[in-house]
Amino acid sequence: MFDAFFRALGRSRETRETESHSDDVRTDGGVADPAMAGEAEASSSSVLDSEFVQSLPFWGPPALLVGLFVYGAVAWNVLISLTDWSGLGQPEYENFDLSVYSQMLNDLLDPTSNFFVATRNTVALLVAFTVITLLLGLLLAILVDQGVRFENTFRTIYLLPMSLSFVVTAIFWSWMYNPSIGLINETLRTVGLGAFTQAWLSNPQFKLGAVIFALMWQFSGYAMIVYLAGLQAIPNEQYEAARTDGASTFRMYRRVVVPQLRSSTTSAAVVLMVFALKAFDFLFVMFGPNPGPSTDILSVMMFREAFMSTNWAYGSGIATVLFLMALGVIAPYLYRQYQRGEL
């Protein structure tokens, strides 16, 4: 069976070789050397000469490693979620059932359950964080793209937060949000808005919002860079044409520029949404394994169930749900790229 496969691979190369031979032109624009082509044809029946085997050393080892440590681990995680492993000790791979998932479905119907609350907060975080970060990133990109002086400096300043670790930013923001000495409340008091000061991280009304704001601060620079690349790919003539036609600045951006940024938006949104699903470290550093019902998200709950409560199977179940959600974000994107032949 494998022989047939390799022969098929070899043959496909052979056909391509003959095709290019018949045109006498190679894809790189040069003229094919008939002697070389003949040589390739002569030995192409050998398995060892097929492109598949020859390229194996390049993609084989990484594919094996990624397959084992990424996809293998994902599969193992799914397997664990089908057991009823909890407590200390080893899992028993004997009776597999979906009890973890049926428990989750039950929990979803109960608005006071941890799983419901964490799912609700995860979705809220995902949507609010992605939308706000994209909007802010777009705004920054448009401003930086105006040909202002020190454009590169601004770009660096906005992008720098991205390079900080979440452990750093979580501690930094818990200082910023400190109600008595934090910069946020101090600023509000200084400008005479003392009435708006809050205990941002203790008041359940503002807790999740405060987290979203901090994450937005960290990621808007990334969105800006993606949009900036998109903006700079738009030819200047289009701006000039819009101006000549008498379009206002707002109208020009709305009708001409922003519609052309669709692919930037999609790729930035995918990255941001996948990040939002795994925003574990920031919350964990800020609040520990129990952020409270107003801010609990699935990734923190996953850690808590597995490593604090030793409900390994339930924790794996949450991990699988997160994996499926991430897949739900990435798969449509990849599929569209594939359809457009960009993959």
């Binding site: 109600p179 991280l201 203790s202």
Partner: peptide, 8 residues
Amino acid sequence: YPEDAGSI
């Protein structure tokens, strides 16, 4: 508690 109990 301190005013900033939730942030320390």
